[in-house]
Structures are given as structure tokens and as C-alpha cells.
Design a protein around this nucleic acid. Structure first.
Lengths: 222, 222
DNA sequence: CAATAAACTGACCAGATGGTCAGTCATTGA
DNA sequence: TCAATGACTGACCATCTGGTCAGTTTATTG
């Protein structure tokens, strides 16, 4: 987490001189990011006023601008942190594992990450769904490479006959969208479907259903 | 489509007197809604200025307010139209049909509707995902009932042994989120997954994958 | 205990944006 | 042809909001 990148560089002209960032600074920046993440995930970039962020963070508005150069800097700062989470779950998919085991681990990792970081997760998904206007080309490229790598692995499994022939990208789409749906489920769409508050049991249930219906069908019962 | 509801009622004090709404009015209102839908679906409620809507519709801003009382009125007007689309696809799920056939028809109907109305579809999904702040209680209740009805049907199929025992709500979640993902797929998330422009073939492929992986696994091979 | 740097903040500003309105032009029905 | 109503619009306004800044307070350090 390189907070420096999203800070006013002018504020710390000689960063190398003091390896330790001020305690107050560290605390307040974290608090601002927390508040901003919460609000951005709910209302999107345009739907949030920095005055709100300030209030949520318990700081005067001008103080926000002491730590961050702009509203956009806060947003992209959050986003950068999340890119690394994108492939965290994907790491589970390795050629040396059994397909069922690997896909299962992926689903559980994704659900688990979302469970632990619901705001961040929703923020990231919303950013993707709106076309990623704040993602850099490098970010996109990174995500594409991470995906391509796993597609190749799945193709290998299929070639080995360890998986039924299925379009790997479409498989990932189903897994990604389904898990994301559960993560965002404290929102209304689930209200309509009457899956109200997601409890631990519900998450288990969700994972089980995805595993059975999706994964189960692409793995031949040896 | 009752446009009257979202119009300035003061403009037509005696609606009953003339059953035919002015041609110009009809045309311009439709044009405004089209423009607004396009923009709202891209940028969300907060992300759109009515000046943009005006430009997109090719009308001066003040003219927008001649037809609609407020920005919110335009938005909720669009939304109301969409509620009816919510169950259009769900209609396919009827107790008298074969489960596989019904679920397949549902997926194809949903994909097809999204294909034909991508903006509306995305707008609606975004509204749901942000917690439906502009949906009325009646709208929510309507959606819940529509879902409940189909859950009962699926439960019946399971009781009859025509479907494997699966949580029906979770099954719908997987189907809904997966299809929605494809509909929104001209956006970045698919860029990362390298499923670029969705062609007709891609839609066929998507439908096939969903059918195979999800539906295929819940229907016992008699 | 200076003195230097970090942390903080009330007050302010420029531009944007939703919305209004008084008045003009166009259409239509008698 | 002539009201009367519908359609339209330039100009305007109140408010909001991202962002600035000059100056003050608090912490750190030699």
C-alpha cells in the first residue's frame, strides 16, 4: 500500500529523510480512506461530496485536502489498493491442482474476500460495471493478463480431459458474476429474491449452490 | 406506458377531453426519455446533468422542464416502465412446463430482452445494485411477489423429483447475475475477460454455457 | 526553550447545476 | 381571422460543491 502516491508530494519534500510517516498522518489518511470507501461504494464517485467524506471521517473538510490533492485522488487511491485483490482469489487456480479443488477454492476465496471487505468489493465491481473510467491502462492490462493466465490453465485441464469442454472465459464470467452478486447481497436485488441478510450459513449455502450447479457440471465424475 | 403520470399534471387540466395527446408532445417526451435512459444507464442518476439530456435530445434545457417536472421525475418515469420488464422473462417459468424447457426459455428471454434494450436493462440493474433508492414500496413488493411465485414452482418441481434439490432463490440469483453480466458486457469487466463485443454468436455461446453449466446440472438426466 | 515543521481550519471563491419565469411563437378549432 | 391553448426559450437565480488559502495551533527536536 503506497499511500505516498496519492498524497500531496509537496507535503513531504524529503520523504527519504524520515522513513517513518507521522502517526497522526497515517491514522487520518486511513480514516479518510475508510470513510470514502464506504460512501463511494454506496453512491458512486459522482454521488459523494467530500463534505460527506469529511463528516464521516470526523474531520473538517479542509483537512481532507491537507492529505489528498483531490476527490479523484482519493477515489483512485482506493482503486489501486483493490487491483491487487482482483487476482488474490484467482491465485487459487493453478495448473498443478485438481480442477474441482481449484475452482472451489477460487469461489470460496472470492466469497470470503467479499465477506471481509464488502464496501471495497462493491466499489470495485461498480467501477468495472461502469466501464472503469478511473482505471489506468496498466490496471486493465494487469487484469487481462491475470485472466488470460487462468484461461490457459483451464484450457489445459480441458485438453487433459479433466474438465468438460466449456468456454473458460464464460465459465469465469458465471463464477465472477454469481459470487459478486452474493457479495452485494445486502442490497435490494436480494430483497426481491428474499435472501435478506447474508449470514455465515447463507454464504456456505451460496458457495455450495455455485459449486454444485456450476462447477459440478463441468467436472466429469471420474 | 402511462406517460401521464410523470408529466406536469397542470399541463393537461382536462385529460379526458382529448384522448389524443399532442403529436409533438408524444414525440418529444419519447425523445427525452430515450436520451435520459442512455445517459442514466451510463453514468447513474447523480452523474447526469439535465443539460446533457437536453443536448442529447436536441432540445433546449428549459424545454425539458416543460415536459417533466424534475430530474427525478424523468428517472422514476424510466424506472416504472422497466418494472414490467422485470417479470417478462419470469413469465416463462410456469408449473405446467418441463423444468429444463422453462429455465432455458427464461435465460433466453432474459438475454434477448437485454440484447434489445441494453440501456434500460443496465439502468435497472444499476438501480437494483445501488439499493433501489428510487423504487417505491409497491415496486419492491411487486418484484418480491413475482419471484416468490416462481420459487414455489421450482419447489414443486423439486418435490416431484423433476429437479435436483437446489435452493431456488440461489438458482435464480445465479441465472439472474450471469445473464445480467452478459447484457452489461460491452463494458470493461468483459474487456478484462477478453469477451469483447458481444456478437449474436457470443450470445448463443453465453446462453449455451449457462444452460449447460447451471441448468444442466439441476435437471436429472431422466 | 526557542525554532522548525506538521497538523489543522474558518472563511472564502469560481464554476457548475437544478430549476424558474416572463414572455414569444406556433397550431388549432370555431 | 381570431382568440386560446400548446409549445417553446433566453436569461436568470439560488444553491451546491470541489477546491484554495492565509493564518493558527500543536507536536517535535536540537
Amino acid at each position: 500500500m503506497q499511500l505516498e502516491d496519492i498524497m500531496q508530494s509537496a507535503d513531504r519534500p524529503l520523504a527519504s529523510q524520515r522513513s517513518e510517516v507521522g502517526k497522526i498522518r497515517r491514522k487520518n489518511e486511513a480514516e479518510i480512506l475508510r470513510a470514502a470507501t464506504l460512501l463511494f461504494s454506496k453512491n458512486g464517485f459522482q454521488g459523494v461530496r467530500i463534505a460527506e467524506v469529511a463528516e464521516e471521517a470526523g474531520l473538517p473538510k479542509a483537512n481532507i485536502y491537507y492529505y489528498f490533492t483531490s476527490k479523484e485522488a482519493i477515489y483512485t487511491g482506493i482503486l489501486r489498493k483493490l487491483i491487487s485483490g482482483w487476482d488474490e482469489a484467482l491465485e487459487e487456480i493453478r495448473a498443478d491442482r485438481e480442477p474441482r479443488e481449484a475452482l472451489e477454492a477460487y469461489v470460496r476465496a472470492k466469497l470470503d474476500y467479499g465477506r471481509r471487505n464488502p464496501e471495497e468489493s462493491r466499489l470495485f465491481a461498480a467501477e468495472l460495471q461502469s466501464g472503469g473510467p478511473f482505471l489506468s491502462d496498466a490496471d486493465r492490462e494487469h487484469m487481462r493478463e491475470a485472466t488470460d493466465k487462468r484461461v490457459t490453465i483451464v484450457e489445459g485441464w480441458i485438453a487433459n480431459g479433466r474438465m468438460r469442454p466449456v468456454n473458460p472465459r464464460h465459465l469465469f464470467i458465471i463464477l465472477w458474476s454469481a459470487t459478486q452478486f452474493y457479495i452485494d447481497s445486502d442490497k435490494l436485488a436480494c430483497d426481491a429474491l428474499r435472501v435478506p441478510e447474508m449470514t455465515d450459513d447463507d454464504y456456505q449455502d451460496a458457495a455450495a449452490t455455485i459449486l454444485e450447479t456450476v462447477i459440478g457440471s463441468v467436472i466429469p465424475t471420474a
